[in-house]
Design a protein around this nucleic acid. Structure first.
Lengths: 342, 342
DNA sequence: AGTCGCTGTGGAAGCGTTTCCACGAGGGCC
DNA sequence: GGCCCTCGTGGAAACGCTTCCACAGCGACT
């Protein structure tokens, strides 16, 4: 006889136990694939589980195991911007794919403003998730602080701007940007502009730094007229390109800090009657699917996204398994993908 | 004296209680804003909570309250397609905004294939969430079945294709598409093409049906050469437009089932040397931010997204509060936004 | 002046798991 | 043939919280 009468909709362990004619402990062992169970008992339990459509109650389990088998990907981005970024989509896809074979689930959390950041901080501290991967963070993000001080396992996607000591995985943004710029220099381009991303994000900052360092290494002085910025989105790229053309009609190349912005820039160039790559050479960043679909297809800087997502999970799981695991950081190499635009 | 020695990182209720000099019950009442607490006790508890940085353990709370204060938005979409859809971004934003004032949290779950759908089904059945909103579902989606049979509160965004009895909120897609098509007819356009969305999705299907019904009501016979399809994405729209121009060079208008596809179509038209709207009139769907940024700005069909997200939550919360609440469905009116493209 | 009710509080019983511990049965070894 | 292990099993104690119930104090009625 079971000790309590739960609603018919949600069978409990001891209902399964009494149906299978064993104890709760045995049922638990079967459910958790413990080896110490006889085939007979195992089969009886399986049948009972099947009959009752039993699903373990996660709250009860978490209470004792202190785990939830859930990891969160937090999207720290105001507005709808982030969602249209193919980079973000690839990250989600990569994490999902790596987690698909495990029994952990990935949940996405959107933190659009400070209030939501605090709410998510609370959510994580309350023990809803075992760990957090933080994406696309601006410099004013509260979450690294909140989470770190609560000892919630945390991995950042991208080097933190404040130099905080925390695990992260990043692409070699500066190196990729420099390679792209050198590629343009090698073509004999003399007036190389750039469309930067937001300069309060590390990817925006580092890609701009890479552009500058390549120019300086070649003995060029960066010209402020040749620099404009966008928000990584297509429309922003289009607008920035228009402004650049107004200010510096003689530009003959542009390094654009994201593929969507490059696609926008391409449209602006076409509207202005410039041919790509004949009049203006264009290099993007990210190697998004979009880059191939452009006309002409974009030369761009590729990041090893699969490797990066795998590393993020690896670092995070290590910290989940062992709270005292050391902080680790990884920077992945980028490489130039040459297509028709430059 | 507290009964157990938890790790210093995670204070428990009785640590707070003993620090505040009251019982666990009183602390619980303060934390849950119960009115039956004296100001003195309340203040003492608040101070102790502050000192220990106490956060209630969610698993323990859920175990007794049988609630998690979490609702999930499930994104049933293969590949990265969905994320680039501004419609989706608006839905997330809307739900987030409505939930920001409450103590519930929104989590996003990506279900890219059957395996992930099953995983998410399990996740929900295990009691990780109080309810589920299901977005963008294809006809072969397993989740409505899984969730309905487990009595997980569920609201669909979009009418289910299989006629299943379940709560949903939808826009009047057919009505909006018909209005758009009538608008083109009223301009005297005679060869009106359409770029449909995926025809295994209700939005794709209904918008196509609206287009056809408007044509038929005007005594026109739909011409199969004037119909092509995309995946709601920009690249798909561009390609579909190219195919349409090949097959029916004499077309003079296009109703496109999404704004991103319309933006792609716009590029294809420009590449083909057609002027918009002079040679070809173009109407999109969704009134995405993108629509205004196009050149020319897109005439498009707007859906009341704020109203729709509010309704989804309203229906869902009603079912969460009362498991026996009746199934409800809402269809929201759409309206044509006239800009320069048609 | 006695009783009633109301308010604030604490004790204790669960919520559904996991897991430690104890125990009985069986088999291989000397 | 006795002893020690190992294996399968069940009992029971936790995990941290909410909430029912009982109770003490106190003011306001009759």
């Amino acid at each position: 006889m079971s000790s309590t009468a739960a609603r018919p909709g949600t069978p409990t362990l001891d209902q399964v136990a009494s149906l299978a004619g064993v104890s709760r402990a045995t049922v638990s062992r079967v459910v958790n694939d413990s080896p110490r169970v006889s085939p007979t008992a195992r089969e009886a339990v399986r049948a009972a589980v099947e009959t009752l459509r039993y699903v373990p109650n996660r709250a009860a389990r978490s209470l004792v195991t202190r785990r939830t088998d859930t990891v969160a990907l937090v999207l720290s981005e105001s507005g709808t911007q982030l969602f249209s970024d193919p980079f973000f989509a690839s990250i989600v896809q990569g994490l999902s794919a790596h987690l698909a074979d495990t029994d952990r689930t990935l949940v996405l959390l959107a933190a659009r403003d400070r209030r939501e950041q605090e709410k998510i901080g609370r959510y994580a501290r309350q023990g809803h998730v075992d760990g957090v991967i933080l994406l696309s963070l601006h410099s004013d993000d509260l979450l690294p602080g909140i989470l770190a001080s609560s000892r919630v396992p945390l991995v950042l996607s991208g080097r933190p701007l404040d130099g905080r000591e925390v695990s992260y995985v990043d692409a070699d943004n500066a190196g990729g940007a420099a390679a792209a710029t050198r590629h343009l220099l090698a073509q004999g381009r003399t007036r190389i502009a750039t469309i930067t991303g937001p300069l309060d994000m590390v990817a925006g900052l580092d890609r701009y730094a890479g552009y500058r360092s390549a120019l300086e290494a070649a003995g060029r002085t960066p010209d402020p007229d040749l620099v404009d910025g966008g928000d990584f989105g297509e429309v922003g790229g289009m607008r920035a390109m228009s402004r650049l053309l107004d200010r510096a009609p003689d530009l003959d190349a542009v390094f654009v800090a994201s593929d969507p912005m490059a696609a926008g820039a391409l449209q602006a160039l076409r509207t202005a009657g410039r041919r790509v790559p004949d009049d203006v050479a264009l290099v993007g960043f990210d190697d998004a699917p979009l880059a191939q679909a452009c006309d002409p297809p974009l030369t761009t800087v590729a990041q090893p996204l699969g490797e990066m997502t795998a590393l993020m999970l690896e670092l995070l799981l290590r910290r989940i398994e062992d709270a005292d695991a050391p902080v680790e950081t990884r920077v992945c190499a980028t490489h130039l993908v040459r297509r028709a635009s430059a």
